[in-house]
Structures are given as C-alpha cells and as structure tokens.
Amino acid sequence: MHLTVSYTAVILLAAALFVIGLYGVLVRKSAIGILMSLELMSMAVMINLITFGRFVHQSPLNSWFFTVFLMVIVAAEVGIGLALVIAIYRNDRTSEVDDLDRLKG
C-alpha cells in the first residue's frame, strides 16, 4: 500500500490543527472548551509523528506504535481532565476558567 499524498499537505494539516487548538486554548472561556482544544493539539502531534515516521524513516512501525500509546494516554488525560472539571464545577458551580482565580497571589 503506497499512500501518495504530498508530505507538505499532511504537515500543513497538522499545523492547522495545532494552531486551531492553540487558538482555542488561548481564547476559550470554558474549561471543557480548553480541554477539547488541547485534544486537537495532541491530534496534530500524533499526525506529525505518523507523517515523520513515514517520510523520514522508511519503516513507519515505530511511529504507529507510539501513536497508539499516545492515543491511550490522551484518552486517559481527557478522562482525568473532565473529572477535574466536574469536581471544580461541584465546588464552585462554574467551569469558566476566568472565575477560578483562587491561586491568585
């Protein structure tokens, strides 16, 4: 199986995903929105990993392997993140990150 999609196209896709995610992280007010944006960013990372694995190394197996690991880790991370959001929401009745400034020095 040979996938002849151009290298730049995939990298650009990953870059676009990453930047969209970054934008979301910076401007989203709700913690859930931020988590979703983070998710996008990690997707971009995975795409990059696979692409470089394919185009730089001739054997893509390593990158596939790591990506599967990454997926599991990201899923777990989102689970924890959502649990935190729920816990925060139960305490403060809000999940807007601007209202959560108890760490203010």
Partner: peptide
C-alpha cells in the same frame, strides 16, 4: 511586585507559556 504575575488566571499563564 512578583505577586502581580501570579494572577491566578489560567489564561495569563497560558499566554506566558505560549
């Protein structure tokens, strides 16, 4: 003086990191 940087707001930290 240093206290002002510790706004306690996630967005401030995020922007600093970025």
């Amino acid at each position: 003086i240093a206290r002002k940087a510790q706004a306690g707001r996630i967005h401030v930290y995020q922007r600093a990191i970025v």
